[in-house]
Design a protein around this nucleic acid. Structure first.
Lengths: 212, 212
DNA sequence: GTAACAATGTTACTGGTGATAACTTATGTC
DNA sequence: GACATAAGTTATCACCAGTAACATTGTTAC
């Protein structure tokens, strides 16, 4: 159609669209949350037409799922870096690392666990990545149990308790439901310690011993 | 303008729009989640024009906030009904009731705590209602502490731990992240008990006693 | 080298959304 | 009954996700 003689740097094939879209979307997610991610705006900012994105992501949710996957991988990496030599130390540290991840990446964390936006059983890669992060937690507990440090109760029960605690704490923390946001690590440590040592007063605890 | 002689049942003033919209939105929320609530669809179903709704709700989020408020009030009511005579029983029961509420109303619960959709500090009534539900939890713990059943540690710390636990458990449960959905009450009870009694093996616990 | 094909872009369009502006009608008060 | 106000209306804007049909480029087979 055009008769222009200039070679005009044909950007018809962008070459790196999926990667660049992923990166940009991740930045928008981090700064403004998942609701702010619009494929049209994304395409415009990259300099490509909106439907082009559909060549690489079957729909918006698939893009979000990809972001969540990288989130779970990052979380898993950070959990894996925790020193496992001492059981008690490892349990506390893994809790601290978990919560601090959520606090560092609140919008990403919300997407990862925003059950409504990305339900389970729809994006297989997401489910696998989630399981991968969860597994680190479970392994740590299993190890502590094997070392005889943790009660020999059902592993799944113990893991559910630990995960619930750190997940709930993360969620409440990033949504501003907890006071004293500055003393956060201290709070996290105290909360995790409570799950380990229990909340019941000493004398009440020993009453049980006398009965047996 | 019209010359029709029939009185034509003037529905110009609906009379009960806000109440009816609230009710219908709540039903849609329950069945299909907050994302499925559209003011246009809502208006059409009620038989009114879409902008009419804006006379009663300043925007969509305000309507959602109203729904969340009723959610918090319902949660508070259910928590208040827990028998408080025995401290341990009360603590466990309040956990059971909390989680069962979330499981009964997953979409409502998600809206109530969907920090992204309804951030804190924007809808005062919502913040108050949330605090009201939280207060029941805190009061129960304070009572157990006053009775000498719970360790005399910081109340806010203990409350944060308890709330994190039941909230995390609720969230993970309704999003399908926990196995064995059928044995849920049993799981909840086990998890709450862990926070009370601790997770550490007996012999490890007693080692502390000998040192002192 | 060229023809066929697959990959990856494009424009044009549909149907749906929240929200606002300007107008109309019913209701309650003096 | 006049009239202010509350509560509806239609018309319109700007945005969005997603689809269809077409265009361009890179690759592979002959």
């Amino acid at each position: 159609m055009s008769v222009s003689s200039t070679p005009l740097k044909t950007n018809y094939h962008h070459g790196d669209l999926p990667q660049q879209a992923h990166q940009l979307a991740l930045e928008i997610l981090r700064e403004h949350g998942d609701a702010a991610i619009s494929l049209r705006a994304l395409a415009k900012q990259i300099g490509v037409s909106a439907p082009a994105l559909y060549r690489h992501f079957i729909d918006r949710d698939s893009l979000l799922a990809e972001l969540a996957v990288t989130g779970f991988e990052a979380l898993r990496a950070r959990l894996l870096a925790v020193d496992q030599s001492d059981p008690r130390r490892a349990l506390i540290d893994i809790g601290l690392v978990y919560v601090s991840f959520a606090r560092d990446e609140p919008n990403l964390y919300r997407l990862m666990f925003g059950g409504r936006v990305l339900p389970k059983g729809i994006h297989p890669r997401l489910d696998i990545a989630g399981k991968g992060a969860f597994q680190v937690l479970e392994d740590t507990i299993a190890q502590a149990q094997a070392a005889g440090y943790v009660k020999p109760i059902s592993l799944s029960l113990m893991t559910a308790a630990a995960w619930s605690l750190v997940h709930g704490l993360s969620q409440l923390s990033i949504d501003g439901h907890l006071p004293s946001t500055k003393a956060e690590p201290h709070l996290t440590q105290g909360v995790v310690t409570l799950l380990l040592d229990g909340s019941i007063a000493e004398n009440k605890q020993h009453k049980k011993d006398t009965t047996s």
